[in-house]
């Protein structure tokens, strides 16, 4: 289904960021993407802060996927 395709994509993206497979993304992981993605370090920080909704410094798969859902479908779709 569409839903599982999105989930699959989300998982792939999460793994690109979580290189070591820790199960969460840190600010440092995000900074490492600086060489691989066109975003500046500042923009990547911004992305991290936006996705890290509880601001604990760890980006879980749930936080990441809800951010991705907002990007795909607009805010308020996933509760």
């Amino acid at each position: 289904s569409d839903c599982s395709a999105v989930l699959e994509k989300t998982r792939e993206f999460f793994q690109i960021c979580d290189i070591e497979g820790k199960g969460f993304i840190t600010r440092r992981d995000m900074q490492r993407l600086n060489g691989e993605l066109p975003q500046s370090a500042e923009e990547l920080e911004n992305v991290f802060d936006t996705l890290d909704t509880d601001a604990n410094g760890y980006l879980t798969f749930e936080e990441f996927s809800s951010g991705f859902s907002e990007f795909m479908f607009g805010p308020g779709v996933v509760s």
Binding site: P38, E43, L44, N46
Partner: peptide, 29 residues
């Protein structure tokens, strides 16, 4: 409303980020 502006700016940054991941994944710039 500055808060709305901030949210919109963040949305743009998020969109760029996820678009970049999409490009990276598919290899299409």
């Amino acid at each position: 409303d500055p808060n709305m502006k901030g949210a919109a700016a963040n949305e743009g940054v998020l969109a760029n980020f996820f678009n970049s991941l999409l490009s990276k994944k598919t290899g299409v710039p």
